[in-house]
Design a protein around this nucleic acid. Structure first.
Lengths: 132, 132
DNA sequence: TCCAAATAGTCCGAGTTAGGATAATACGAA
DNA sequence: TTCGTATTATCCTAACTCGGACTATTTGGA
């Protein structure tokens, strides 16, 4: 088994764990995991394409998630002044409150207790380079 | 943005890239990405629970994937001699051939060219500890 | 022995995801 | 300007995924 193949499995496993973590947090807040991730990334208004990029998913998928959030009054689609094709996704009052709760809950539990702070830093650095 | 939160996003991004890679390979071979991963992990007969663990997914999901593979004649469910509840997933002739193609295709392109061999090794080491 | 709890697998419902088709708008080059 | 190409978002379909309910079987303790 080559290093590369093992790497795939390890990344998938860690991703699945982090995802479970987000899922638990989201359940507690009454939203879905994807919504929690979207809220996490919506620190400032952005286009759907940009949100999809931040969420590491397809644009159509981000659209599906935003549809539900719009129904729940968490986000609005405002026209983009500079491009009539585009819309700016902007959090509502409720969305901002919900985002605060998400960030709070996500930071409460460290999802990778097994690593020291230094190891986490070097892991982040490696991942940054790997995905650059 | 804390290190932990950034870590979540980076892992998701890398996972998505590796997944896309598997998806392209699988498309070329006429199977789905999940099937390619299942084939990759089925180096030897194992139970459904074990396969799910290797695939980093729920048992029910692994069952869904195996159902399709069984329909296509890639895998068989044989009774486990030691436990009448369990079944051993075993590749057929066609499954073995397909697995060979998958391993070949997956090893052709390195999915993380941005890192040197040493960096890949330390990344693998960190991920092993993080998911231990 | 006998029963409660744990484990293995199946099935189902609801929700999520990718990818392709489409329509509207923007952009760049001739 | 004007046309071909690229971008932005939406919708749809097929496929995937989780989590829970259920049955059969095993295991461990009284």
């Amino acid at each position: 088994m080559s290093t590369d193949v093992e790497l795939c499995g390890l990344v998938a496993r860690l991703n699945q764990r982090l995802d479970s973590h987000v899922r638990r947090v989201a359940d507690r807040l009454g939203i879905t995991a994807s919504q929690a991730i979207a809220l996490r990334e919506l620190g400032e208004p952005m286009r759907l394409t940009a949100l999809a990029e931040h969420m590491s998913c397809e644009t159509s998928n981000a659209g599906y998630v935003v549809d539900r959030m719009e129904d729940q009054g968490l986000v609005e689609r405002l026209p983009d002044p500079g491009d009539r094709r585009a819309k700016l996704l902007s959090l509502t009052e409720a969305g901002l409150r919900c985002r605060g709760n998400v960030l709070q809950a996500l930071s409460e539990q460290a999802p990778v207790e097994a690593l020291s702070a230094e190891e986490r830093d070097s892991l982040v650095a490696l991942l940054r380079r790997a995905t650059a």
